[in-house]
Simulated assay, not measured.
Amino acid sequence: MRKPLLAALALVMFVSACGAVRESRLNPFNWFQRSETVAVDPVTQKPEDPRPLAQQIIDLKVEPAPGGAIIRATALPPTQGWWDAELVKRGDDQNGARIYDFRMSAPKTQAGVSTPRSRQITAAVFLTTRQLQEITSITVQAATNGMTSRR
Score class of each variant (00 low, 15 high):
Ala8Gln: 12
Met1Cys: 14
Met1Asp: 15
Gly91Gln: 07
Val113Ile: 07
Val125His: 06
Asn27Val: 07
Ser16Leu: 09
Ala20Val: 12
Ile138Ser: 06
Ala106Met: 10
Phe126Tyr: 13
Ser24Arg: 11
Cys18Arg: 08
Asp92Tyr: 07
Thr79Leu: 02
Leu87Val: 05
Lys89Arg: 15
Val43Thr: 14
Gln110Cys: 09
Gln55Asp: 14
Val38Leu: 04
Lys46Phe: 11
Ile58Phe: 04
Gly81Pro: 00
Lys61Met: 05
Leu26Cys: 11
Thr139Ser: 09
Phe29His: 14
Gln120Leu: 11
Arg103Ala: 02
Leu76His: 00
Glu63Asn: 11
Gly67Pro: 07
Ala65Cys: 10
Thr37Trp: 07
Asp84Arg: 06
Ala123Gln: 00
Pro107Gly: 08
Arg98Ile: 07
Pro47Val: 06
Arg98Met: 06
Val12Pro: 05
Thr115Ser: 12
Gly68Arg: 06
Lys89Asp: 11
Gln110Glu: 15
Thr122Gln: 07
Arg98Thr: 12
Asn145Gly: 04
Arg25Trp: 09
Gln55Asn: 10
Arg90Met: 07
Arg2Val: 13
Ile58Trp: 00
Gly96Ala: 10
Leu87Glu: 04
Asn27Gly: 13
Leu11Met: 13
Glu134Pro: 04
Gln56Met: 12
Gln55Pro: 01
Gln94Trp: 07
Phe102Ser: 00
